[in-house]
Design a protein around this nucleic acid. Structure first.
Lengths: 261, 261
DNA sequence: TAGAAAAAGTTGGCTACACAACTTGCCTCC
DNA sequence: GGAGGCAAGTTGTGTAGCCAACTTTTTCTA
């Protein structure tokens, strides 16, 4: 076997990732650099395997990743076609406003409007899988890009994570990063997106008229064992962000739902 | 090898699907029936393989599907955990308003406001990968649930598919189904979601005030070779639909974007 | 020359095995 | 009782090979 350009199977070196992940990252760069042209064709799995010194199975794993991210098609009988250079974001960037803003080259900001502990409502008990009578921490924060208010974030943490958040400075930026550092592991998240009219609190904080249509994102994140870590309702001013999803016939992640969640 | 309950490897029988798809469908039913309980644990891959008479690889393929749909977690060292009974939709339901409405038990409706052929704009030439000076078909339709207007759909088809659509009755329902029947194959789609204020056309058609925040979905669908089949901008009345996405740390399909697309 | 048939090339799907990395529970030892 | 370590169980990653299904190219034939 040939030692490959992406650093075959040496743990502890170069990011500690699996080979197929490194291969996927490497191929992503080539694709984004236009190596195969837009709408061009990828080399065959077999030749890629030989080129990188891995087995066809590993190449297929890597390509499945790129496929799920919408970079390439795949279809029996013919070579893979480059779909576009849709740069996808890391999972982290999706969960953390701060991480996302930085990746965009913007200065993220946060102003905590309030932060309190209280008994969980029935809905929260359900969503966070809490025991009856459990206590949650509710945080209301205004998020900024530069000095411009963009989003109002209402997050509910279960007691365990809430304790970590409760002790932070009111202008501290990323709660997600703090939780990450404290050992919490984010593994899955569910997002629901719709429009709601701004209420008086939204209007006051975001500086818009009451009734303005805000883009609402409800997110719920869980750890690898399926235990809910947070539940959040974020309301964005119109025109500040959009969400985009890639879907393929083999795997469909996006769903359209009736009415309000 | 034992002949399995899901119909092992006999093409032409029972839906013509791959084994791992049938297995996934079968397990989805079990999960949704609460066979393993909510937050319960799945049997090990090995025991599933034995139970269904397939190899572990096939079981892993099936579980990867369920994982991508957010039904189960997975994590090295411990059994898979049931996340929830998140019923996902077929790819078809996401592309076709008609199919989606029917699956919700609602009566879909459509009223064509106009349908015309014209030269493509620069943006459309880019999005649909057309040659300069190509002709597109633009269709503006009001979509209903029951008798209630819900969405205004502005779709642009390239010449080839547009020809099929142009010859339809103004009240015909699903353009997607017609295209499907005419041999077009939808394989991938890209969706962007944000909010826009209703303009005078929107307000008139949907019966809302001008400036009302509408949920906008921009979709672009391609065939297996990556050739664009349609480009559409749909504007939903607030409160009528929401979109939901599942993401996991291993594969993330959703992205947050800056400003308008 | 045009159309049909054959051949070659490519991805999808499945099996089998091996080892690595991680979690969990049990057992021992202090 | 508690802490630590050990062993078993489980999923992740990688390899190798086989055939099926499908597309594209080439070749043959009328």
């Amino acid at each position: 076997m040939i030692e490959s350009a992406v650093g075959a199977g040496r743990p502890g070196v170069a990011g500690e990732k699996a080979q197929y992940r490194k291969l996927a990252a490497s191929m992503r760069l080539e694709i984004e650099a236009g190596e195969f042209g837009n709408n061009g064709r990828l080399p065959s799995e077999e030749s890629l395997a030989e080129q990188y010194g891995v087995s066809r199975g590993t190449v297929r794993n890597a390509l499945a990743l790129l496929r799920a991210n919408g970079l390439v098609t795949s279809r029996r009988g013919t070579r893979r076609v480059v779909l576009g250079t849709a740069r996808t974001q890391s999972f982290q960037e999706l969960l953390s406003f701060t991480a996302w803003a930085r990746a965009q080259g913007e200065e993220p900001g946060a102003r905590t409007l309030h932060c309190l502990s209280r008994p969980a409502s029935a809905a929260e008990t359900e969503a966070l899988q809490l025991d009856d009578g459990a206590v949650v921490t509710e945080v209301l924060r205004l998020r900024l890009l530069g000095r411009v208010p963009v989003m109002l974030e209402r997050t509910v943490y279960p007691e365990r994570t809430g304790a970590v958040i409760g002790g932070l400075a009111p202008d501290s930026l990323s709660h997600t990063e703090v939780l990450d550092a404290s050992g919490a592991v984010f593994a899955d998240s569910e997002h629901t997106i719709d429009v709601v009219p701004a209420d008086s609190v939204d209007a006051g904080a975001l500086g818009c008229a009451e009734g303005t249509g805000l883009l609402r994102e409800i997110r719920r994140a869980t750890d690898p064992a399926g235990v809910p870590l947070l539940w959040s309702e974020d309301r964005f001013l119109p025109g500040t962000v959009s969400f985009s999803v890639h879907n393929s016939a083999s795997v469909s992640a996006l769903a359209r739902r009736r009415g309000r969640p």
